[in-house]
């Protein structure tokens, strides 16, 4: 069953059109990885779905309801939560305050501060520390935990491994796997192709604002994705250098 549908969405930053006529669907319980080069429009698309960016055209449907004009905080209450790029924690608030804040404003459900700390054990000792004083990996765990506190039906993750040490990335992805096993619906933006392919059930590749390739992760070869990622196929088609 389709939980989230993006229908013909255009999104602009001033004169720059970052997202062009994108349509995609995410089914309940599915993990869709959105890949693509820098500037392909992945972050803008995610922010548009979360309500942080107003689309210039198109519709966003959640659970069959048109939410295109509802503000970000209402979408959180409906069950869409974004873990933004660069984590964006409230640096002056403690880890626990960051978590409880999201718990208050979101939906009721299974996630509590204790449950988040259980999922990310490294946070146990840091509960009273100010978020601005955490390491990158600890911040990312807090950011994901903060999003989980809203008990989302679909979790949007933007570049969760960016700027982290390899061991921290491993930790973050291990907890993602356990979320996926629990049936959380995830839409994930990732630059690291093999990481994306390893957790996702489906992959969509963006190039210059459009989705150029979409399919089941298992049926897709790495070469196919790489080709779409850099727009090589199109280049060949137009007679450009391969």
């Amino acid at each position: 069953m389709t939980l989230l549908a993006v229908d013909g969405v255009d999104a602009r930053h001033g004169l720059l059109q970052a997202v062009r006529d994108v349509s995609l669907e995410v089914a309940e319980g599915e993990t869709l990885a959105l890949v693509g080069a820098n500037g392909a429009g992945k972050t803008t698309l995610l922010r548009t779905i979360a309500g942080a960016h107003r689309p210039a055209a198109g519709r966003i449907l959640f659970d069959g309801r048109d939410i295109t004009s509802s503000p970000a905080h209402k979408r959180v209450r409906a069950g869409i939560t974004l873990v933004p790029e660069g984590r964006r924690l409230f640096a002056n608030l403690t880890v626990e305050e960051n978590l409880t804040l999201a718990g208050r404003a979101g939906r009721s459900g299974p996630w509590t501060v204790d449950k988040v700390v259980e999922t990310f054990p490294m946070l146990e000792a840091l509960r009273r520390r100010r978020a601005g004083r955490l390491s990158g990996g600890e911040q990312q765990a807090t950011a994901i935990g903060r999003a989980l506190m809203t008990n989302p039906r679909v979790l949007l993750l933007d570049e969760v491994s960016l700027g982290l040490a390899p061991v921290a990335v491993e930790g973050v992805y291990n907890s993602l796997r356990s979320l996926i096993e629990r049936g959380t619906t995830i839409l994930l933006v990732e630059q690291d192709l093999s990481r994306a392919l390893s957790v996702a059930s489906r992959v969509a590749c963006m190039l210059e604002g459009r989705i150029v390739l979409e399919g089941a992760a298992a049926e897709m070869t790495r070469d196919q994705v790489v080709e779409a990622y850099f727009g090589l196929a199109r280049g060949r088609r137009n007679g450009g250098p391969a």
């Binding site: 979360a50 309500g51 942080a52 503000p71 970000a72 905080h73 959180v76 209450r77 939560t81 974004l82 933004p84 964006r88 409230f90 640096a91 002056n92 608030l93 305050e97 960051n98 409880t100 804040l101 999201a102 208050r104 404003a105 979101g106 903060r146 999003a147 506190m149 809203t150």
Partner: peptide, 17 residues
Amino acid sequence: RAMRATAEDPDTAELVG
């Protein structure tokens, strides 16, 4: 706490509801 969070980063405050 919501007020402190909004003071720090209103866009992200919206994103946590």
